[in-house]
Structures are given as C-alpha cells and as structure tokens.
C-alpha cells in the first residue's frame, strides 16, 4: 500500500525563529480581576492576609492568568490548506510563580508544521511554543498550542 503525501504549503523558514510578543506588568488589580471573572477562591490567589502565611509569603497569580496573556501577534506559518482553523490542544508547563508587580515577557516560535490523515480526512497541525519569563529572566511558564487546519465538508 502506498501512502500519498498530502499537499500543503507553508513558510518553512519560520520554523524555530523566536519572536518577542511583548511584556506586561501583572498588577495586584489584574490578579484580582482575573480571580473575579474566573471565580477563583483559592486564598493563595485571592486573600492577601491568608497568602502572607502561605508558601510564597504573598498572593500569586493563578496559573491560568499567565497562559491567558495575549501580548501580541506571533509568527505566521502561512499554511495554505483547508477552509477552517481550530484550536486542537494546549499544554502548559508551570515553572515558577508570578507575583504582583512582576513584568512578564512572552516569546514565541513555531516548533512544527505537519499533516495527519485519518478517518475524517487530512489535517495540518501548527505547533507554537510560547515561553513566559519574568523581569529577572526566569522562565515562569511555557505553553505549547496546536492549531489544526482542515477542509470543511460541503456535502
């Protein structure tokens, strides 16, 4: 049996190039607002007094606040395939805590572009890795996001 390689185009030169997306100060107010919107009740994120006697000596940002940050446009692999794009997956690694007043900088690269063919047809995956560092240059989190391009059935 022969497997026909799916045909799709993309910008191969973009793979592995780092792009700085921008920086943002994570204020105490930003943490408070995130907790309010997401319904966070863990005192580590919400209660200054309780968090003062906790493991970090103060309130910290919930992990989701960091991977919700959208600090700018990332690289574009210029994939030419299909008519629809979906968010397929997200993997977050939490390396260190983010405290009020920390300035977080995001850098992003496209790690991989590849095709898979299954029962529902061919899909092209674009995997982006975003690394978040604080003002000391310490890696606080990294997120790998998979977007999928696919053809839409028009039957």
């Amino acid at each position: 049996m022969t497997t026909e390689q799916p045909v799709f185009e993309y910008d191969r030169d973009i793979i592995g190039k780092q792009f700085e997306l921008g920086s943002q100060e994570i204020t105490r107010e930003r943490i408070r607002r995130f907790c309010e919107v997401l319904g966070e009740t863990n005192p580590l994120f919400t209660d200054d007094e309780a968090a003062a006697s906790g493991p970090y000596g103060a309130v910290i940002a919930p992990p989701g606040l960091v991977y919700s940050l959208q600090l700018g446009q990332g690289p574009d692999a210029k994939v030419v395939f299909g008519q629809a794009t979906f968010h397929a997956g997200e993997r977050a690694e939490l390396h260190d805590v983010v405290r009020p007043g920390d300035v977080v900088t995001a850098r992003q690269q496209i790690k991989d572009v590849f095709a898979k063919t299954g029962r529902s047809g061919t899909m092209v995956f674009v995997v982006r890795r975003t690394e978040f560092t604080n003002q000391h240059g310490t890696l606080v989190a990294a997120v790998e996001q998979s977007m999928v391009h696919r053809e839409v059935n028009r039957g």
């Binding site: 966070e40 009740t41 863990n42 005192p43 580590l44 994120f45 309780a50 968090a51 906790g54 493991p55 919930p62 992990p63 979906f86 968010h87 397929a88 997956g89 997200e90 993997r91 977050a92 690694e93 939490l94």
Partner: peptide
C-alpha cells in the same frame, strides 16, 4: 488548584479540545 490547596504545585496541564 482548588483541589490541591495553597501548598500544592501544578506542574503541567495538557488539554485536548
């Protein structure tokens, strides 16, 4: 993070949509 409590540490979370 609610389940683990303040001294727990989330190392990774890997989600498929």
């Amino acid at each position: 993070t609610d389940w683990m409590g303040p001294q727990g540490k989330l190392r990774t979370i890997d989600v498929d949509f």
